[in-house]
Nucleic acid binder design. Sequence first.
DNA 1: AGTTATTAGCTATAATTCATAACTATTATT
DNA 2: AATAATAGTTATGAATTATAGCTAATAACT
Lengths: 157, 157
Amino acid sequence: MVKTKKVSTQDQAATGRLDSSLRGIIGYTMKRATNILQADAAQVLEEFGLRITTFSALVVICDHPDVTQSQIAAALNMERSNTVLIIDALEQAGLIGRHRVPTDRRSYALRATLEGMKIRNAAVRALAEREEVILHDLTREERAALLALLGKIASRS
Amino acid sequence: MVKTKKVSTQDQAATGRLDSSLRGIIGYTMKRATNILQADAAQVLEEFGLRITTFSALVVICDHPDVTQSQIAAALNMERSNTVLIIDALEQAGLIGRHRVPTDRRSYALRATLEGMKIRNAAVRALAEREEVILHDLTREERAALLALLGKIASRS
DNA sequence: AGTTATTAGCTATAATTCATAACTATTATT
DNA sequence: AATAATAGTTATGAATTATAGCTAATAACT
């Protein structure tokens, strides 16, 4: 994956990266950092048969039994319609179940299975470990500070 | 005195966030933060007739006259094929020009026009101002720290 | 030299992700 | 009872990103 491209132009070594002034923009650099973490997370989750979206939904369901698909959509900032296939996948994998709720027959009460709980726990642990590895050049305090700062921004949605 | 009352999951679902345990994952929270900043940036750049990708390419071209499309692709971490339409858009907007280079007739030497330079400067300034606004609840030091931490992660690509 | 390999830009297209609209069935509101 | 609103679903569109292959030009190699 890592390209060791031979730099043919003259002044590249002097100027460094071609996007150096973009790197001063928080949004730009954050996007690049996100891409790296997302690719890594996807790789980790693949070993559990999960994608990032299915994993996220699984966590919400485990943490909040009897949650509905609409609530998941709102929590994960996605469209209701796009939750359907995600929940389908989790159900077909035997990780969650759609349960009818007698008081409202429009919605499903989603609940994780025992297997779903186990997968969730293992995946969360694996992700945390992987983040430790990939962020090894940040101290524990720096990682905490980073998360706090990101949390402030992300708290707007 | 601090009350440490234990809340049931039902109550948490009613009051708190449903994705609270996901928010402890840096990659997840960073993704959410990125979405906010990206949407904001897209809105700002729209006023200049730019999209995020065209803006990014424009900045690289302004900073590095006679850069090639392949170099832009490498710098912005995108596929060569996807640069074509981006450069087309910039050229048709009169912001850059494709210039032939006598020593290598395969590639173009991309150079910004005067108008391109002006748009770039205005867009960069507008973006910076907008980031100040949207990140107003972070101190200058916090924003600097955030950028530094993100830069460490993003430096891997 | 001549052959081969590599590179730059380009086109077309596939795969993904994400958003929108409309439908059915239920439930809530008036 | 009539109407509106909601949950899940389906189909589809738009936008982004990735992949494969092509031509022309250059580089590398024997």
